[in-house]
Simulated assay, not measured.
Amino acid sequence: MRWIFLTISIISEVIGTSAMNASEGFTKPLPSIITAVGYGVAFYFLSLTLKEINVSVAYAIWSGAGIVLLAIIGYFWFGQQLDLASIIGIGFIIAGVIIINVFSNSVSH
């Protein structure tokens, strides 16, 4: 269940952050509400994840996956550009998450 909880947390955080961008400084009610709910769900499921995965590993995966997903959403949904340095950096983040998942022995408590 830990990976399901972490996935739900990541997706909720990405939804919340995307809605925050659309809220235009919390001036639009619906995106503002989605932001609050998204972050509430994200932190709740992250807290469940931390019962089974070390905080450093869970947070690295959570934040890394969130960064990558938000960069993709920003590019396609919000029309934000990614330069070569951004793409290379995102590639390193993906590599780091893969390395943690494949090679780390510190995933569980």
Score class of each variant (00 low, 15 high):
residue 56 S to T: 11
residue 71 A to Q: 07
residue 43 F to S: 11
residue 96 G to I: 13
residue 58 A to I: 12
residue 91 G to A: 15
residue 97 V to W: 06
residue 89 G to P: 08
residue 39 Y to T: 10
residue 68 V to M: 05
residue 105 N to I: 01
residue 104 S to L: 09
residue 18 S to K: 12
residue 15 I to R: 09
residue 6 L to A: 04
residue 45 F to D: 09
residue 1 M to G: 02
residue 74 G to N: 04
residue 62 W to Q: 02
residue 28 K to Q: 15
residue 30 L to I: 11
residue 8 I to Q: 00
residue 55 V to W: 07
residue 24 E to F: 00
residue 65 A to Y: 06
residue 54 N to A: 14
residue 39 Y to K: 05
residue 5 F to A: 08
residue 26 F to R: 02
residue 7 T to G: 01
residue 46 L to V: 09
residue 83 D to W: 10
residue 98 I to R: 00
residue 92 F to V: 14
residue 14 V to L: 03
residue 85 A to T: 11
residue 3 W to T: 01
residue 91 G to Q: 09
residue 12 S to N: 08
residue 104 S to H: 05
residue 47 S to V: 13
residue 106 S to A: 02
residue 78 F to V: 09
residue 12 S to M: 04
residue 107 V to Q: 13
residue 60 A to D: 11
residue 67 I to C: 03
residue 5 F to C: 05
residue 108 S to I: 06
residue 64 G to C: 11
residue 78 F to K: 07
residue 40 G to P: 03
residue 26 F to E: 13
residue 51 K to A: 13
residue 4 I to L: 14
residue 31 P to N: 05
residue 17 T to I: 12
residue 45 F to H: 13
residue 91 G to L: 15
residue 55 V to F: 12
residue 7 T to C: 10
residue 93 I to R: 05
residue 39 Y to C: 04
residue 63 S to E: 03
residue 95 A to R: 05
residue 32 S to A: 08
residue 108 S to H: 13
residue 86 S to E: 02
residue 25 G to I: 01
residue 5 F to H: 12
residue 55 V to Q: 01
residue 70 L to P: 00
residue 85 A to G: 06
residue 66 G to A: 09
residue 53 I to H: 10
residue 46 L to I: 14
residue 60 A to G: 13
residue 99 I to L: 12
residue 64 G to I: 12
residue 2 R to N: 10
residue 77 W to K: 02
residue 7 T to R: 06
residue 9 S to Q: 06
residue 72 I to Y: 03
residue 65 A to C: 14
residue 61 I to G: 01
residue 36 A to N: 09
residue 78 F to R: 10
residue 109 H to T: 00
residue 14 V to E: 04
residue 1 M to I: 04
residue 72 I to E: 05
residue 95 A to E: 11
residue 88 I to L: 15
residue 39 Y to E: 09
residue 31 P to T: 05
residue 63 S to I: 08
residue 13 E to H: 06
residue 27 T to M: 02
residue 24 E to N: 03
residue 10 I to T: 03
residue 19 A to T: 03
residue 1 M to W: 00
residue 88 I to E: 14
residue 62 W to V: 04
residue 41 V to E: 12
residue 58 A to C: 09
residue 74 G to S: 02
residue 84 L to A: 14
residue 79 G to A: 02
residue 39 Y to N: 05
residue 76 F to R: 07
residue 56 S to N: 11
residue 36 A to K: 11
residue 34 I to F: 09
residue 29 P to F: 15
residue 6 L to N: 04
residue 108 S to Y: 12
residue 86 S to K: 13
residue 86 S to R: 13
residue 66 G to H: 04
residue 32 S to C: 08
residue 61 I to H: 06
residue 44 Y to H: 13
residue 76 F to G: 05
residue 90 I to R: 07
residue 53 I to R: 12
residue 13 E to T: 03
residue 103 F to A: 11
